[in-house]
Simulated scan of single mutants.
Amino acid sequence: MAIAKDRDQKGGFVRPSSIAASIHEQIYQRIMSLEIPPGARIPIDGLARELNVSQTPVREALTRLEREGLVRKAHLIGYSASPQLTHKEFDDLYRFRLMLEPESARQACLKLTPDTLARIESAAADMEKGEQPVDRNSRYSRFARADAHFHDEILKVADNKFVRQALNDQHIHLHIFRLMFHSRVTQEALEEHERLLAAFRAGDADGAFQAMHDHIERSRDRLAAAFE
């Protein structure tokens, strides 16, 4: 099995990342692309044989995925992929986002410094220009993670730890991207993020509120097709 490699902070020495991290990434991609369907059992022994590793890194990866809300563990049954959001949960989640994220964008805009704006812009750029994924599955799953990072950077600047924790605890972006495996979801999100960045660059707090509000509503409309 090929093990992912990372460069150190100086860009020189290349070292193998942990086997558990590599296994986590592979299972994560399968869940996000629906290769492992919602509710499907995830047998540890079967995955270990398929990935040619011991059961220990598979258990470690599944434990991490459980914390991320993507798998569940049941007594005497084992692990399974978390069920898909119901239509009501989906609607409730987007109402929740609309209550918190537009105002967070406004507050972030009011508190921006050149350094924090650069950090948000870097997170946005990473969604489009980061390390090239090897296939469509990894590209989509990587985008979901990068999207979550972009939104979290805005929450960091808004600087309300309760709002940030409430949103992060729901693992929102992982669950909504799992609803529909489609390139339209990513391309339109990039365009909406650019309108939000334009408001940040202009110091337009009301514009940032509206751009985030529109982005969340359009995201809801795109993904609602999963329930048709």
Rank of each mutant, 00 (worst) to 15 (best):
T63H: 14
R59G: 02
S54R: 02
G11Y: 00
D45T: 15
A74N: 04
L76Q: 14
P57W: 01
P38M: 10
G69H: 12
G12Q: 04
A61L: 10
L65W: 13
V53P: 15
H87E: 14
L51C: 06
E35V: 05
E60K: 15
G12R: 07
V53H: 02
R49E: 14
D45V: 06
P16R: 00
R30Y: 03
I77P: 03
S18K: 07
L85E: 03
R41G: 06
R72N: 13
G11P: 09
G78K: 04
Q55P: 12
L34N: 15
S33T: 11
E50F: 08
Y79P: 13
Y28E: 06
S22W: 02
S54T: 15
T86W: 05
R67T: 12
I27F: 03
S80M: 08
V14I: 13
R30G: 04
Q9D: 11
H75S: 06
A61H: 12
I31M: 10
M32D: 05
S82R: 08
P43D: 10
N52E: 15
A20R: 12
E50K: 15
R49F: 07
R64Q: 11
A61I: 11
L65G: 10
D45L: 08
R15L: 06
F13Y: 07
A20D: 07
A48E: 06
S80F: 13
L70K: 06
K10L: 11
Y79Q: 00
A48G: 08
P38T: 07
S17R: 13
P16A: 01
G12I: 00
K10W: 08
